[in-house]
Write a protein that binds this DNA or RNA. Structure first.
Lengths: 134, 134
DNA sequence: CAGTTCAGTTTACATCCGTAGTCCTTTGGC
DNA sequence: GCCAAAGGACTACGGATGTAAACTGAACTG
């Protein structure tokens, strides 16, 4: 079932990335290979996590196949194995499937109804629509 | 911190509703006051859960403030305390905040890029946009 | 060469979630 | 009035998650 746009297997971690893990992924998506210490330095500020916590999250992400490690001297450099756009896409699809019967329009309607759409958003979406209709 | 659009307290369970719990909520959103047995009958078909499982989920939802119980004879009738639209709205907002920097347009762009938009969706969204611009 | 320090691995633990068994109470039937 | 059935409450338990300490091995330093 489900689409699964076939082709290039390799990635696709299947395992879901948790909230805390996502924060780590974000840091690595921002800048590609980083050591645990680097990640910790960046995240420590935002979330106040200790080094062990960050290490655990990194290890779990590696176990889940979401990160790759490259030995560099006596430590590892971590690199995302899944693209942010890929993750974001599958999460969006999940939401749309779970709550909007798989249709994007109701989601959009909902955002509109809750005034979640800024003027900028509207303008941008119109632009995108024009693209799509071309 | 975070927004928390203050005002009318009362509802707003704060506690997050899990995946399995959501299935129970869906049944109750479909038809308002139902007994545990009713819910179980409906869900049993779809998810194959046993009665105890459904009862546990109902109890947890009550504990979370997502459901209200009304004594009816010697059993309880369960009623949603939060509206589906409310839940759906907050989940959508969560996604947009977490993954798209709080902007709806990138979400939309993502759905478009992944061909998640049907022609119907596009037509409907255009209609909504027209509404918004009025 | 030994000690310190750094980095990854293992272990830990409380909580939540999915799933379900068991128990207790109440109510209805005989 | 007593027993069985129905229904809610309590308990359970493995896995995931958030958060972190302790352990271990390797490298740099004096």
């Amino acid at each position: 079932m489900s689409a699964d746009q076939g082709s290039a297997a390799a990635e696709a971690p299947a395992e879901r990335i948790s909230e805390a893990e996502l924060a780590v992924m974000e840091v690595l998506w921002e800048e590609a290979p980083q050591s645990a210490a680097d990640v910790c330095a960046r995240i420590g500020k935002a979330r106040g996590w200790s080094m062990p916590t960050v290490k655990t999250l990194l290890a779990r992400l590696v176990a889940k196949g979401a990160l790759a490690t490259t030995p560099e001297g006596r430590r590892f450099l971590y690199t995302p194995l899944i693209a942010r756009s890929h993750y974001v896409g599958s999460e969006s699809r999940r939401l749309v499937d779970r709550l909007f019967g798989g249709r994007a329009a109701p989601l959009f309607a909902n955002l509109a109804a809750n005034e979640q759409l800024s003027d900028e958003d509207i303008a941008e979406i119109e632009r995108l629509l024009k693209e799509l209709r071309k």
